[in-house]
Amino acid sequence: MKKKRMWSLQFSTAAFVLIPAAVGINFLGKLFADVLKLPLWIDAIGTVLASMLAGPLVGAIVGVINNIVYGFTTSPVSFVYAITQAVIGLVVGIMAYKGWISNVGKAVVLGLVVGFIAAIVSTPLNIMFWEGTTGNVWGDALFATMLAKDMPLWLASFADSIVVDVPDKVVTVLLSFLIFKGLPKNVKLMYDNQGEIERL
């Protein structure tokens, strides 16, 4: 079976229906992480799964819509990070397409890459909008310590993002990978398959 092209803009109905479901999964991931008092956000599982299933563009759209909806329903500050979420979707989609989800080891690497890139994208946003803080207690403590030692603002802010994003994204990608591996055939087929109708 031929896999469909990575950058196809011809979204199927299934892809459109996937987007709200993926946003919902993001939402519930965060909810359950709160309920279980886990020290992570785990709020991007839906974005990552959508990228794995339907490619980078759909993943990026999930990311953007996720933060728009979040902005509309809980905290407008999250509009700012729509770009980060979109980049997460893109990176996962591209790397998944290139085979970086074939085993656990590669998935960990993918998680690290996603975490780093998320931090790289978030840092200028953090600096531009709030002079470098993230609102995460541990990250901001590190930020403050580094500033106190007279390190440059951008480095401190980047470090702030890294300690927050990398562990979270590694866990997120790993969990998504586990779920993705266990998806039923009929779901994977629906997104994989651009097959033709064979006439008998």
């Binding site: 109905t13 398959n193 097959g195 033709e196 109708i197 006439r199 008998l200």
Partner: peptide, 21 residues
């Protein structure tokens, strides 16, 4: 069937005059 699910399809279905395939 067949437009959403694809797969292998034989024979015909007609809705009035219109053939489904």
């Amino acid at each position: 069937i067949p437009h959403f699910f694809k797969g292998a399809y034989g024979g015909d279905v007609y809705i009035g005059e219109m053939d489904v395939l």
